[in-house]
Amino acid sequence: MSTGPPTRVANPPGGAGRPRLAERLRALARRRRVRTTGAPVILLFLGLAGTGWDFEGVPAVGAEMTVSQAKRPASREAARLAAERQRLTAALRRKVPRGSWIVIDQTHNRLRLMQGEDPVLEAPCSAGSGMVLKEGSGGRVWTFDTPRGRFEVLSKAERPVWRKPDWAFVEEGEPIPKDPGDRIEYGSLGEYALYFGNGYMIHGTLYERLLGRPVSHGCIRLGKAPLREVFRQAPLGTPVFIY
């Protein structure tokens, strides 16, 4: 594209007066100033008028779909596909646990106990605070997050004792004891604990007023009454889903 100097436009042949509109526009387009500003103007035009997204609404189907699915398949291929559809649907349905299972929403600090497809209990809990603890001298770092994913209840305990890990002493500015017996603490985990792996558990708390807030070190804290119910209804192997 040439960016030469602007050129003057001659009057149209035979026309003694003003140039015609088309010629005036052509002359205008040859000017450098118009060329440099033309691209953004075109882009703006495209942006406002000619570029974007073409959306189409999707109607809810519901009952109609059920009726059409119930029809007899038209061909052998359709029958084969219908059988596979049935098999896949059944396989997906089997993934829902039949007995008790637990769902924990760690963002909103809610615990739900399910029995098959029915919720039987919902209660506020406290999940990991997300705080990062840095040890002044040793340089160790702990992040108090609750893990996400699928777990299962590996063991259960009544009147659990807490074997305090290093971070519990570091956080309180206490020296880490050499005697393992000095790590044992009674009562702080409440009446029951359900372990679901890697040191994480669902347990009680001394600070029930903080339930509903993310204040734990990664475990799930639960109030006294719901904890008792969860302990009673969740046998070993109960799936625990945390998101």
Binding site: G52, D54, E56, V58, V96, W101, R150, F241, Y243
Partner: peptide
Amino acid sequence: LQGVSLDEYAAHGLEWGIPEV
């Protein structure tokens, strides 16, 4: 997660679109 519904949200409208230039 693994075929299990954890949280369900009812939608008040659904559309799908494609870009056009």
